[in-house]
Amino acid sequence: MMRLLRVIRAQLRASLALALQYRLEFLVEGLLALLWMAVTLVPLLVVFGARGTVAGWSFAEMLVVLGWFVALKGVLEGTLSPSLMQVVEHVRKGTLDFVLLKPADAQLLVSLSKIEPWRVIDFAGAAVIFTYAFRQIGHAPSAADLLLSAALLLAAVLVLYSIAILVVSIAFVAVRVDNLLYLFQSVFDVARWPSSVFRGALAMIFTYVLPLALMTTYPALALLGKLNARTALGALLGAFVFAGLARLIWLSSIRRYTSASS
């Protein structure tokens, strides 16, 4: 376990040093993260400029969903996407073997191989959004709600991570997987709205097929104290099953890769 942490720390340090090499880019990317946060907020402001509630959600409640969205987008674009792009590159250049040869878990190495440190701004932004939202609501979330929503956040990150791992597993079979990742990133944009905005078939898809509801809507509901225990438990369970499945598929595709490339 300690070794695992050391590996993670070393990877983070390397990524940070790499990111700092590019001075201009560092500044620009930091500002960019802020800009994109503003871009995410503008539509919400405009929509609620016209309406008091939308699909049963007030402005403040919708902000909570958006807060989770911003935070998770930070996770996705700050660690998962760049790392996975790295894998795609490895597979294309045939240098993945170097990664597989290292005496640490390949999935771990692969999924943290590159981070973009300026994405920390996303978390700060999410915190600001939460603070503002609960000021508007008038009371802070209870400790129990906080705990539940933290648990659900964990589930959300796990699902996000698993989807990314699944995408990479495909990389071993079909090479141009960067596009799939890109597609997923853009589909993830749907998670900026609570799932109840959607109706009919779309609502079903975003809850069960691509569990976007689990990523932002459920943690938000939990924080607002509106999520019932059964849904929460179901979501957590679902997330772990999903992660286990992704791990299995990862292992089997690694095996196939190593046996095929020898």
């Binding site: 539509p43 929509v47 016209a50 309406r51 939308v54 699909a55 890109y182 597609l183 990133q185 853009s186 589909v187 944009d189 749907v190 900026r192 709205w193 905005v197 959607f198 779309l202």
Partner: peptide
């Protein structure tokens, strides 16, 4: 297919 932002925005406005 990744150009889906207009549809995402449509969902919220249609709801509103």
């Amino acid at each position: 297919f990744a150009t889906n932002m207009p549809l995402v925005m449509l969902a919220i406005w249609a709801a509103a």
